[in-house]
Design a binder for these strands. Structure first.
Lengths: 146, 146
DNA sequence: AGTATCACTCAATAAGCTTGCGTTGCGCTT
DNA sequence: AAGCGCAACGCAAGCTTATTGAGTGATACT
């Protein structure tokens, strides 16, 4: 995991479908050398995989919200994960410091869909109370250090 | 934009480096047909591009926080965007309903780095007050409808 | 000094991309 | 009802890229 690896990763974050030759040219290596490093990074779990960046609006996922989740008593983080993971509208979930126990990031087709997703979230047994903050507009949404 | 396109997108979200032939096999099309559809989706902006999924821990971006931003008076969303965009630690920013004006998602190497990023965020001229919520653990982080 | 290890380049083959071309299905006009 | 134009498809050819093996040089350890 040296500076060469980091530059390769940075290239892949910018364009995950770039050819190994292109990446190699950018970082000063041959194509096979790049492939071997990428394979190793995947093996080590530093690279988790490759994904497409989709315009959520275009696909009809235009509405999102951040939800503070307050639980009944002490709930282990693992159980929180298991509780929210089945909801397809959940795109992110984090345990946090402060008064709330967790923050859940919801993405839905519209306000009505968001409402039903929230209802299902509140239906999770250990969840006591939720405080929702609806997103009005997405200003920025990018990978780190791109 | 039909169901075939959606299935192609779903394949690409799962693995952005899959070959057109693989995708075609999964959705019942030939490789050239898939390529033409992908090109069109890119043209239309429905597909924004392809990126690598990196383990943030491994790259030394293990600490993150959500920050409620409160502005001085009325600030247009565009100016908020311009204000936070230069900070590399900002991975997401949203204007929201409720008492706060915006929510900013920060990602930093460690607590100290997070602190300096917060200071720089608070240094943005129109920002009045911030309320930070530090992430203790990431439970879930996934693309929608994967 | 010798040697093991590691990562690289080069080269060759296999796989995949990309484009032109002919075909088909569908809606619209004549 | 036949003809036309459009849009999308599959096939095939030529070209590019991926992938593997083999050889080489640098580094570090014995």
């Amino acid at each position: 995991m040296d500076t060469l690896d980091q530059r390769i990763i940075s290239q892949l974050v910018t364009d995950a479908r770039a050819s190994y030759a292109e990446i190699g040219h950018a970082v000063g290596l041959s194509a096979p050398a790049v492939k071997r490093r990428v394979d190793k990074l995947l093996d080590m779990g530093i690279l988790r995989g490759f994904t497409a960046v989709v315009d959520p609006e275009a696909l009809g996922w235009g509405t999102e919200a951040f939800v503070e989740v307050h639980c009944h008593g002490n709930v282990p983080t693992q159980r929180i994960r298991e509780g929210v993971e089945p909801l397809p509208e959940v795109v992110g979930a984090y345990t946090v410091s402060g008064p709330a126990d967790a923050i859940v990031h919801l993405r839905a087709a519209d306000i009505h869909h968001l409402e039903t997703a929230l209802e299902r979230l509140r239906g999770v047994e250990f969840i006591n109370r939720t405080v929702s903050t609806v997103v009005l507009s997405r200003l920025l949404d990018r990978p780190p250090q791109a």
